[in-house]
């Protein structure tokens, strides 16, 4: 089964002159760590937003674990996925524990089981000593780690991460990447967007490069690098397909 499958996906935002997605089609198999890569404005965030049900597509279809993204499936899809936004989607005036307790409560967890779950995750991410510190006072890496915990409290089958390592130090980055490998090893799927192509090359089983709202190429990093003799790594492949022109 595929973790996600999008077909001929189109999206034009109200008032926009050009479409954000122009018939994007791609699939990722369940149980992989997949990279959705592309320059700025390629349509990565729009694709993820449509998959999560935050934005409605203008055309085409999107499925998660075989469930079409339609209002009738929205609750089931929400239970199946965890989304780690690029921004730190936590309340800075609340402590890490209070934030996680709140989001845990929204997922329907409460009491001792929730407290234990929160403390386990905080320990796993090296945040147990900062549990009762306001997240606004966290370092960048600590915020990123807490941001991930808030999205996995319900143990989703598919974890979608938007630039999860942007602006973090080497240690935090290493911890986050290891967590993704471990999470995947439990049979869960991960979809991950990043501009750090060496990182994507390191952890992704499969990548899809998209540009201007369409799929440019898809395959394993090794396969893509091997296709072009002049490409030494995924970054060379990326530049080969998307060009050197600066994107805004």
């Amino acid at each position: 089964m595929n973790s996600i499958a999008v077909k001929d996906l189109e999206k034009t935002y109200a008032g926009a002159l050009t479409p954000s997605l122009r018939g994007l089609s791609c699939t990722f198999a369940e149980g992989t760590i997949a990279g959705l890569l592309g320059p700025n404005g390629a349509g990565k965030t729009t694709t993820i937003s449509i998959l999560c049900g935050l934005v409605e597509a203008t055309g085409g279809s999107a499925e998660i674990f075989g469930m079409p993204q339609v209002p009738a499936n929205r609750e089931a899809i929400k239970r199946a996925i965890g989304v780690v936004p690029q921004r730190i989607a936590l309340f800075p005036q609340l402590t890490a524990f209070e934030n996680l307790r709140y989001f845990g409560n929204l997922y329907g967890f409460s009491g001792k089981p929730l407290r234990e779950k929160i403390m386990q995750h905080l320990e796993a991410f090296g945040l147990e000593k900062a549990a009762h510190k306001e997240t606004g006072k966290f370092s960048g890496g600590m915020k990123r780690r807490a941001n991930i915990i808030a999205s996995i409290l319900h143990e989703p089958r598919l974890l979608v991460l938007d630039e999860p390592t942007a602006g973090v130090d080497v240690q935090s980055r290493s911890m986050i990447l290891q967590f993704l490998r471990d999470y995947n090893a439990k049979g869960n799927s991960v979809i991950y967007t990043s501009h750090l192509l060496d990182e994507a090359e390191q952890i992704c089983n499969e990548v899809a490069i998209i540009d201007e709202g369409t799929l440019v190429v898809q395959g394993t990093p090794k396969e893509l690098v091997g296709r072009h003799g002049h490409c030494r790594n995924l970054e060379d492949v990326f530049l080969h397909y998307t060009g050197h022109a600066v994107r805004d």
Binding site: C52, G53, L54, E75, K78, R79, I81, V83, P85, Q86, R87, I88, A89, L90, F91, P92, F103, L106, Y107, G108, A150, S151, H154
Partner: peptide, 19 residues
């Protein structure tokens, strides 16, 4: 809305109306 916690709340199963 700006810091993304609204998106997080909307992505959690259950009616946002209760929030």
């Amino acid at each position: 809305r700006e810091d993304g916690s609204l998106v997080r709340m909307k992505l959690i199963p259950g009616n946002y109306l209760s929030v």
